[in-house]
């Protein structure tokens, strides 16, 4: 082929003549020439490759032995350091034990096994026309044997029965898997009128006098441990308590009575998807959610100033009881945490 594509010293006339006879596409040149590897013709190279495979397998054996030694000699122990040592030694044993076998097998295949490429024919996936006809015939025969075509009522009954029976599995599953299905629980938390605000996790009640300007408290209801499912309640009831200079505090008219001397309490559950909004920036009064970076302004009703959340953090109305402890005036006035379809209903 290449000969008539390389006109060499032919004149332009001759080339133009050949061009008319050329095919539309180049023909496939066929399988390329095979190049022998060194080990194919040099017995020394062949022997060397074999030795290398043996060495790799020996490394594997040593790796396994090393693993067994490490297993007995280096238990995880009491500290992170001894645990890491044990992990490292066992892991290295495994690495050499397995890697030796793998490298040996691949090296053997690449350097010593026959490397002449072979070609196999493919056949179209489609069955031949005869096969298809025979298949249709077989099915038609079976359908005729069953008489399904003539028995419409039977067919309908069969389809109905098959469609209905999974209900017997699904119904009890759906029925009980969501416990009482009382989704209105989302709308209430453990906070009630008079519940003391306590430190998380110690549960120690907080006095208003202990809260200095600029300080932050992670707060739970003092009687949280009395709940039937404390963790479930905690997941809704956690609160962040901050004291600002009253001059920095902008309060809506209907919330004037919800704070105490610059102390404000907001739900710690992000109104985006529910992470704890735990990062407080004292200088700017900004609260940042570490999960998706929604930013709330504690000085201004915990309104969203950046990020994927839409709503402000719900505020917990607080007051001080006779002994000077901070207490809740009531539950939150709206559901805490992420939005859901009927949260305003």
């Amino acid at each position: 082929m290449s000969t008539h594509l390389n006109p060499g010293h032919k004149t332009s006339n001759e080339v133009a003549r050949t061009a008319h006879a050329l095919p539309d596409r180049f023909p496939n040149p066929g399988h390329p020439e095979h190049h022998d590897r060194r080990s194919d013709f040099d017995p020394a190279a062949d022997k060397r490759a074999e030795r290398q495979v043996v060495v790799l397998l020996t490394i594997s054996i040593l790796g396994t032995i090393g693993f067994i030694v490490a297993y007995f000699a280096a238990p995880p122990g009491q500290t992170v350091a001894s645990m890491r040592t044990s992990n490292l030694l066992l892991g290295l044993g495994l690495f050499f034990g397995l890697g030796g076998i793998g490298a040996a097998a691949v090296h053997w295949a690449k350097s010593l096994m026959n490397d002449h490429e072979k070609s196999e024919e493919r056949h179209p996936q489609r069955s031949s026309d005869e096969t298809r006809a025979a298949a249709v015939e077989v099915l038609a025969e079976g359908a005729a044997d069953s008489g399904i075509g003539r028995r419409g009522v039977l067919k309908g009954a069969l389809v109905s029965a098959l469609a209905l029976f999974p209900l017997m599995i699904v119904l009890p599953l759906i029925g009980d898997v969501g416990q009482d299905w009382d989704v209105s629980k989302f709308k209430h938390t453990w906070w009630k009128k008079g519940t003391k605000l306590a430190k998380d996790p110690s549960g120690q009640p907080i006095k208003a006098a202990d809260v200095t300007i600029g300080s932050v408290f992670h707060v739970i209801p003092a009687d949280l441990h009395e709940a039937a499912h404390p963790l479930d309640e905690k997941a809704k009831a956690v609160v962040l308590l901050v004291r600002l200079d009253p001059r920095d505090l902008k309060e809506a008219d209907d919330r004037k009575g919800w704070s105490y001397d610059g102390i404000v309490a907001y739900s710690k559950i992000c109104t985006h998807v529910g992470c704890p909004v735990a990062l407080y920036e004292q200088q700017t009064h900004h609260l940042l959610c570490p999960c998706h970076q929604s930013t709330f302004d504690v000085g201004d009703g915990a309104k969203v100033i950046f990020g994927p959340a839409k709503r402000p953090l719900p505020q917990l109305p607080i007051a001080v009881d006779a002994e000077g402890y901070l207490v809740a005036q009531s539950d939150f006035h709206e559901p805490v945490g992420p939005s859901f379809w009927d949260r305003l209903k």
């Binding site: 892991g91 290295l92 495994l94 690495f95 397995l98 890697g99 793998g102 691949v106 053997w108 295949a109």
Partner: peptide, 24 residues
Amino acid sequence: PVYTAKAGGFFFIVFSVIALMAAT
């Protein structure tokens, strides 16, 4: 034997690399 050795060997190599990652 070629792919038995190559693919079989490659399984051990993959496992050993994961083991090395887990070790270190």
